[in-house]
Nucleic acid binder design. Structure first.
Length: 433
RNA sequence: UCCCCGGUAGCUCAAUCGGCAGAGCGGCGGGCUGUUAACCCGUAGGUUGCAGGUUCGAGUCCUGCCCGGGGAGCCA
């Protein structure tokens, strides 16, 4: 007996009428007595196998009882187009092989609470929605690389172990580095500024770490960030780039991950509206929106979750808020020469209340001013000697931004909490599995 | 660190005014040739988070503790 060719479920449409082999895991099963339905997943998709009592040997038909959820199985059968089957194709099963029997798989088809699922993240990843989310994440990572490659950016990997803080040490994970203190990176930006002076247009993409005691749906202790930095760029230039970037990412997912969005029950009409141009408003205009909505807010302060929600819900597209008060932004942010109390900064807020996905702006490029800022912010000048070198030797105007990957995924995929946007989330005081 | 909510069967939850601790799913046994988180019949399954208090009587009220979730601050 010749063994049929192993194929992936996503390729079944090219094998209609042929006998194939699917190697995967049992996702679900149903039976009506003399007909069994086996829903199998193989990583590339889900397919229903139909086992008819009068068409397979008795021992194959009876194997149904041994096939517990998440057991690994090999199905052989003929591919058929079938409107009654989920996905449109099904397998007329000729043979079933049990590779390994899973005993009492804990995650069932019914609802579970987050407290039950998170400690079982290694298994939860197999569930349909989580599967869809990780495929969207993977596609976004590809889209990020493609976007910058198309625009001739050079990818520069920032270090993860760093000697000093970018914005103070209170929220850093500290570790020992041969007897000296070192910290896990909370941003690659300063290194990107150095790299931009070497390559003009650069970006980094990697994990960053914040030891903030944050316990909200928008926070992770370890998250991934994309940080482009462009020499000779202004605030305007970087807003244009951020806009193009986000439009590109949304388009890519709509184009290549529509099935996954459907599994997640995402309302794609809201994503279709994400086209240029995005509204750009001054911080002061954002304050007006907040006050018109009746929120108690002290102008000059940074926005909290409620304020961000009110602003972003005023628009159908991501909105860019720029010219924040300088005192609530980082030391390296350049001030507007016309209004020195305001910084050349921008935040992009995602619609539907998903909050800030981008933060960036133009950097201070004058040596004396930067030294003064470092002093004003009570930061150790000696740690920034190398950074100051960038202003000593051929300083130019430059700007950049950082985009939080998980918040972007949560928004595009329409999931409420960022913990589902990363394979193994690191949450406050939780590092298992 | 602060604020709010919760902890009852393996899971998700219910239990009126303080009055016999229940359902669905999952498990197990049976039935069904087109199921879509299948359905139908039957069945097993409980230290109601822990400690104390009030009461004839506490899952329910009170005190303390533990654990979990959501949010604030901070940020992407």
């Amino acid at each position: 007996m010749s063994r049929p060719k192993p194929v992936y479920i996503e390729d079944l449409k090219h094998h209609v009428g042929q006998e194939v082999e699917i190697r995967g895991w049992l996702y679900n099963k149903r039976s009506s007595g003399k007909i069994h339905f086996l829903i199998v997943r193989d990583g590339s998709g889900f397919v229903q196998g139909v086992v008819l009592k009068n068409q397979v040997p008795e021992e194959v038909f009876d194997l149904y009882d041994e096939l517990t959820l998440e057991s690994s199985v090999i199905l052989r059968g003929v591919v058929r187009e079938e409107p009654r089957a989920p996905g449109g194709y099904e397998l007329q099963v000729t043979d079933v092989q049990l590779v390994h029997q899973a005993k009492d798989y804990p995650i069932t088809k019914k609802e579970h609470g987050i407290g039950f699922l998170l400690p079982r993240r290694h298994l939860w990843l197999r569930s349909r929605k989580q599967w869809a989310l990780m495929r969207i994440r993977s596609e976004l990572e590809k889209a990020i690389a493609d976007f910058f490659e198309d625009r001739k950016f050079v990818r520069i990997d920032a270090p993860i172990l760093t000697p000093a803080a970018v914005e103070g040490t209170t929220t850093l994970f500290e570790t020992d580095y041969f007897g000296e203190k070192a910290y896990l990176s909370q941003s690659g930006q300063l290194y990107m500024e150095a790299a931009a002076m070497a390559h003009g247009k650069v970006y980094c993409f990697g994990p960053t770490f914040r030891a903030e005691k944050s316990k909200t749906r928008r926070h992770l202790m370890e998250f991934w960030m994309v940080e482009p930095e462009v020499a000779y760029a202004t605030l305007e230039d970087i807003m244009d780039l951020a806009e193009d970037f986000v439009v590109y990412l949304v388009e890519r997912i709509l184009e290549r991950r529509r099935e996954e969005l459907k599994i997640l029950e995402r309302d794609t009409s809201k994503l279709e509206k994400v086209k240029k141009p995005f509204p750009r408003i001054y911080y002061s205009e954002a304050v007006n929106i907040i006050q018109a909505a009746g929120l108690p807010f002290k102008p000059g302060e940074d926005f909290g979750g409620d304020e961000e929600t009110v602003i972003s819900e005023s628009f159908e597209k991501p909105v860019m808020v720029h010219h924040y008060p300088a005192r609530i932004k980082a030391f390296y942010m350049k001030r507007d020469p016309k209004e020195p109390d305001l910084s050349l900064s921008v935040d992009m807020l995602a619609p539907e209340g998903y909050g800030e996905i981008i933060g960036g702006g133009q950097r201070e490029d004058d040596y004396e001013t930067l030294v003064q800022r470092i002093r004003e912010y009570n930061l150790p000048l000696e740690s920034y000697e190398w950074y100051l070198d960038l202003r000593r030797y051929g300083s130019v105007p430059h700007a950049g931004f950082g985009l939080g990957l998980e918040r972007t995924i949560a928004w595009i995929a329409g999931v409420r909490h960022v913990r589902e946007a990363i394979p193994f989330p690191r949450l406050l005081e939780k590092i298992y599995p």
